[in-house]
Design a protein around this nucleic acid. Structure first.
Lengths: 177, 177
DNA sequence: ACCTGAACACCGTTCAAGT
DNA sequence: ACCTGAACACCGTTCAAGT
């Protein structure tokens, strides 16, 4: 048994950090905590992540990959609901992805993951005259709805029905403005 | 000259914290930093704010009040653009308001400020058949657009035109679903 | 009431050192 | 290459004390 505790410490750190994130929130997520959970010294992580931000970037990229999968599995009409469901099921991950803590410009793999998820939306609007605008509007809509729900700005007894109703009230123009 | 440096230390702390927030970001915003800038000892703030979260709550409430004023001054059609403009002009404040760092349930004055801003939107949709749904959808749309722009997910040369186009592509159903 | 200084338990990050 | 322990400068928060 070697002195190296893990065949894959980066993966172990990501798993530990992901668990801490959803269970105890972003505030509790530190490099030291992840190291502790992975059973290594408090600065072993620096061999694999240059700083805390890099760990957050990796977690966010994971999140975009998960989101992309969820969306891609859905028929167009239900994609919006799938987006909101993801946000509500993984609130802390979702906040990390959009909290502005990690500049996408610094992490190409994060940008790629995000664009991958966006692609799923764009696909769904292929048939409309201005698909890129409709997709941007649709993303804005479902993203804003998710965020405002998470923040508690909408308080309705039947959340699912509310989501359906809000999404149902919107039409994307069939003709260029 | 008394030993109390301020007639209104809470206000001084809020001003200092607001400056730090927009200039150096949320990460640099600490109670100790605000105390330093206000010229008091590092735990004088605890006389006025029970903890860091309470200071953030006050800053967020200020933000919703500012946003409400911006919206109320606008004719319906331009309200959405005013919302996005606010987010782009005060990015750090905007993120604080929606970052999930402050649970609205714990701060009634925060909830009131947020609802005040929402009221401006609801007013604008009075004439539609289901105004509350249209307002919720409109808020979601402009909020999501703001957030995604801040995060750098949309990269367009002419930002203002893009915002107009995205908002222009959406219609709110004239008839109940 | 309001403010201070010392103290405690946490961080992120750096450095010199071990295998 | 990969990991460790000591160290530094920061936090939030609590406490006993001063005016």
């Amino acid at each position: 048994m070697s002195t190296y505790h893990h065949g894959d410490l980066p993966a172990a750190l990501l798993r530990a950090a992901g668990r801490t994130l959803e269970r105890r929130g972003l505030a509790a997520l530190s490099l030291r905590e992840a190291a502790r959970r992975a059973g290594v010294s408090h600065n072993a992580p620096y061999r694999h992540f240059p700083d805390r931000e890099a760990l957050l970037a990796a977690l966010a990229a994971e999140g975009f990959a998960m989101l992309g999968e969820r969306l891609r599995g859905q028929p167009g009409r239900e994609m919006g609901e799938a987006y909101v469901r993801f946000a509500l099921q993984q609130p802390q991950r979702f906040r990390l992805m959009f909290g502005g803590l990690v500049p996408m410009t610094k992490y190409p793999e994060l940008r790629n993951a995000a664009q991958g998820a966006y692609q799923a939306l764009i696909e769904a609007f292929k048939e409309l005259p201005r698909p890129e605008l409709a997709a941007a509007a649709a993303w804005s809509l479902v993203h804003g709805l998710s965020q405002l729900l998470l923040d508690g700005h909408f308080t309705h007894t039947d959340r699912e029905a509310f989501v359906r109703d809000v999404l149902g009230v919107v039409r994307f123009a069939q003709r260029a403005a």
